[in-house]
Deep mutational scan, measured.
Amino acid sequence: MASQGTKRSYEQMETDGERQNATEIRASVGKMIDGIGRFYIQMCTELKLSDYEGRLIQNSLTIERMVLSAFDERRNKYLEEHPSAGKDPKKTGGPIYKRVDRKWMRELVLYDKEEIRRIWRQANNGDDATAGLTHMMIWHSNLNDTTYQRTRALVRTGMDPRMCSLMQGSTLPRRSGAAGAAVKGVGTMVMELIRMIKRGINDRNFWRGENGRKTRSAYERMCNILKGKFQTAAQRAMMDQVRESRNPGNAEIEDLIFLARSALILRGSVAHKSCLPACVYGPAVASGYDFEKEGYSLVGIDPFKLLQNSQVYSLIRPNENPAHKSQLVWMACNSAAFEDLRVLSFIRGTKVSPRGKLSTRGVQIASNENMDAMESSTLELRSRYWAIRTRSGGNTNQQRASAGQISVQPAFSVQRNLPFDKPTIMAAFTGNTEGRTSDMRAEIIRMMEGAKPEEMSFQGRGVFELSDERAANPIVPSFDMSNEGSYFFGDNAEEYDN
């Protein structure tokens, strides 16, 4: 993207840094990872977990959730003011799984939030270390993106479920800051804005008074975040219109849905970061690795190297396929839920299948599930090659597409044709070009129609051997075009429920 120079890199967003050079960025990201790792080690000690239990991804998720809940100030305040039966607002906890007599047992633990905050700050040299908290939120978000298709949420806001490739980060909490905003897809931002506008339509006082002023500035800020994701002048001009509207209503909703559809071809720039579970960072720190000293990046080879040398386990339900569970977590670790499966298959070195073909449910185990038949197995999170994460949407291309997802959002900077089903997408653009945004709409449609099938995206960008740390010898991959490109292809993934 041309304006790259004016933006802070995501590592800076990730670490609240002012302008830093590459070495400083690597050190501050490393410091953040160190903090998460030290916190995780301490929690495993508190909970008396064995090494194996500490490497269980379900335990990692519970521990991450506990610290996120302990620092969720708004919710904590709300819980104190609106006490609900049987919930102690000062405590947080969740299921911890232990191996007892050759069987997995679930144990519900409860801790004072104050105590968890103390352990977290102690692991982070006394700081609140917001960057580390956001990092864990993005890992949870990436896992949700890989596990669930947001059909219901899309339909509720009037969008087409086939636009799911635009929904990265749709389950990120509001408090995820600049680093969170960077990884949100165009569809996620559109959905947040539509929800806001709908509230304004239904509630006369939404934009009024002292609160209304705050609401208005939040609305304009979200519009600017979305505008910054678009790469064409016409899309940005249309966002200006939406932002400046005196009284946002149905016309703005129409414009936003139009823009979301246009992003299936004229893709937005959305950041991709490899955020790993805390149970990967903990053992690495415990083994003596100093992330701050060595430096770390979320968008280069580092996460690949770390996963190459990590042992992570997962509980497996009786009829689940461990290899499929591994694929789910591998995609989440690489922030690749909406990437082209052919690119992923090449990088991973084994075939990556669409969601609907995987015999696996989510990673988390519900409290009512029976533990008797639970097994555990090693997650295979290694890769054959590594590639640089991208934040450009890439230019655009036609490809055989599917009944489910009709476009992709690249996660890796790797040369390819970008699949999208042009006739299906263009069919949504018939007729409606009147109104105050008509010239911009016409211009956007013209650009979409001009998108050429034979153009290559990320020209000359390749993948790298894991021994090639400096990215000196790019390998331009070859793809098996007979395979499906979309992950949520004609899909039956479970729906995400809060």
Rank of each mutant, 00 (worst) to 15 (best):
V285K: 11
M13Y: 11
I253Y: 05
K90H: 14
I388V: 08
K273W: 06
N59L: 11
A286Q: 12
D101I: 09
I445V: 14
G86Y: 03
R26V: 01
P89F: 15
N76Y: 04
S3H: 13
S359H: 07
T15K: 00
I201F: 04
Y97M: 05
V67G: 14
M191Y: 13
P83A: 14
Q327K: 12
M159N: 03
G356Y: 08
S376Q: 06
L466M: 14
N250Q: 10
Q415A: 15
L266T: 11
D51C: 04
I347Q: 01
A234P: 15
E107Y: 02
P248K: 05
G362A: 10
M167A: 02
R348P: 06
E254H: 11
G300I: 06
A286R: 13
T350V: 08
A131N: 11
R199Q: 10
P303A: 15
K422W: 00
L61V: 15
I57K: 05
R65C: 11
G394A: 05
R26L: 04
S359Q: 15
K305M: 07
E73T: 15
K198Q: 13
M239H: 02
R416K: 13
V414T: 15
G5Q: 00
P283E: 00
M32C: 06
V285I: 11
L49N: 07
A233G: 03
R174V: 05
K31Q: 08
V109C: 15
G485E: 04
G393N: 04
D51I: 11
Q415Y: 02
N417H: 15
K305P: 06
E469C: 01
K184E: 11
L328S: 03
A286V: 10
M105T: 13
G212E: 07
I119S: 03
L110I: 15
L47A: 04
F71W: 15
S84A: 15
Q42R: 09
K422A: 15
E495M: 11
M43T: 12
M43I: 10
A401R: 15
R117E: 07
N202V: 07
P354N: 11
N483H: 12
S402Q: 14
I253W: 13
I96V: 15
S314R: 02
A336W: 00
K422C: 09
D480A: 11
K305S: 09
A428P: 01
P161Q: 12
L193K: 04
M481W: 15
E46A: 06
K113R: 10
Q12V: 05
F489E: 01
L418Q: 04
Q4D: 00
P354I: 06
N76M: 12
R389G: 02
F39M: 15
P419F: 04
L166K: 01
E81P: 00
A22T: 14
N395V: 02
N142Y: 09
S314L: 02
N483K: 15
Y496W: 15
F464G: 00
E465D: 07
M1L: 11
V408Q: 05
G393Q: 05
P423W: 00
I316H: 08
E294S: 14
S392K: 08
F488D: 01
L143K: 08
N205I: 11
M448W: 03
L266W: 11
M456Y: 11
A323V: 13
N397C: 11
I194R: 07
Q58A: 07
M239N: 07
L344E: 05
